[in-house]
Amino acid sequence: MIEWLYSKIFIAIVPEGENFDVRVVTFKRKKLLTKENKYFEGQSSFEMMMKFLRKQIQESPLHYIAILNPDAKQGALSGCSFNEFDNVLTVCRKNKWHLYTSLQEVETLKKTYSDVGIDFIFSPFSVIEHFFVDKIDTGFALYALAQKDSLSIAFFDEGILEYAHHYPNHAKEVTLSKEEVGSEFTVGIDDELENQKGIDLDDIESLDDLDIIDELDSLSDIEDLDTLEDIVEFHEDEPTLEEKNSVVQNLDEIKQEMDHFNDDYGRFEIIQKTLEHFYASKECRNRFVETIYIADAYGSGSELKRYLEEELFLNVLIRRINVGDEVISLSMNEEEG
């Protein structure tokens, strides 16, 4: 009866480092009323977001807040028979595979959002499964969710997840190591675990170590154009303020392009290393990945697609994804039971 009187509000929070992407969708009697997106960044991003959330939930008692799990140590493994580990929360999926995350992280999230309440915490791998529902059951393939500051990778075979790992801050130094939840083939960020039992493999090299095209070296000289009056040949024809602003804008565009190159190559390296160690493990069972499906949440994966096709000879399918929308869809599924 109450559903006929009040609208339902679904809120999705997608953390991006210190920033937050928030999606709000309102329904009444299953009819879509409103959709709204807010992005909070800067030093007061969390406080501003909480103020916004408090205002939203005052609109109706039927509100549901979900967050994409930001835990750096989360992952997923095949099977639902596993040993209990201290401070590790596990959730079985379809009696075939399970998600794991830090129990401490879950408790921290609940405490952090206690003013508004968190109803659902979703894994990036649940997002992958939901987003590629039309592909998951079609055979053996690699799936990835590429966000601005993270990369989540999962192997599915005929709808069964065999292994998955979440790589936060993908551009930082990365190692491949044995996870504490246990598996013959596991890949992860090795920071706090480096003193625990396991084998630390070679770090993925930073893009700074690459030999970038020689012609691009001259780009650094463009900065000198800000002091054109000091250059004799340009002194008599000093650029206007508009021309100088155009140069600065061009420099910003060049920097963005180089940062994007860095992001795509960093993701490529992680995928490459993950495949190498999968092929070296007994879980491989003479299988080879022919296709990778990428959910692209950061705007463009053209360079990543080129690297994967030319270097690893993979078939690459890239789909743009709004992660907030997927989290909303998962929340609605859970609310409907």
Rank of each mutant, 00 (worst) to 15 (best):
H235R: 09
Y6A: 09
G159C: 10
R285Q: 06
H98N: 09
L317Y: 10
A295V: 04
A154V: 15
L225C: 01
Y298M: 12
H277E: 14
F27R: 04
K96W: 08
E41L: 13
E107S: 12
G301N: 07
T112W: 01
K38V: 11
A154W: 07
A280P: 02
F268M: 04
L151T: 09
E84T: 03
F40H: 01
Y143P: 14
N69V: 01
R285I: 02
I189P: 07
L308E: 02
T101S: 10
I11R: 11
L142G: 13
F132P: 04
D115G: 10
N95E: 15
K55H: 11
T175R: 14
S218M: 02
T186W: 09
T108Q: 15
S183I: 05
V174K: 15
I231W: 03
Q147F: 05
E242V: 02
V24K: 06
C284V: 11
L99M: 12
L210R: 13
K55Q: 15
E47F: 03
G299M: 01
S281I: 02
L241P: 01
A144P: 10
Y298N: 13
D191H: 08
F140L: 13
L33K: 15
F288C: 14
K255T: 10
D157Q: 11
S114P: 06
S44Y: 07
V106L: 10
T90I: 07
N322P: 04
F288D: 14
A171R: 11
P61H: 14
E269H: 04
M48L: 13
V232F: 07
G42H: 02
I160H: 07
A297F: 06
K305P: 01
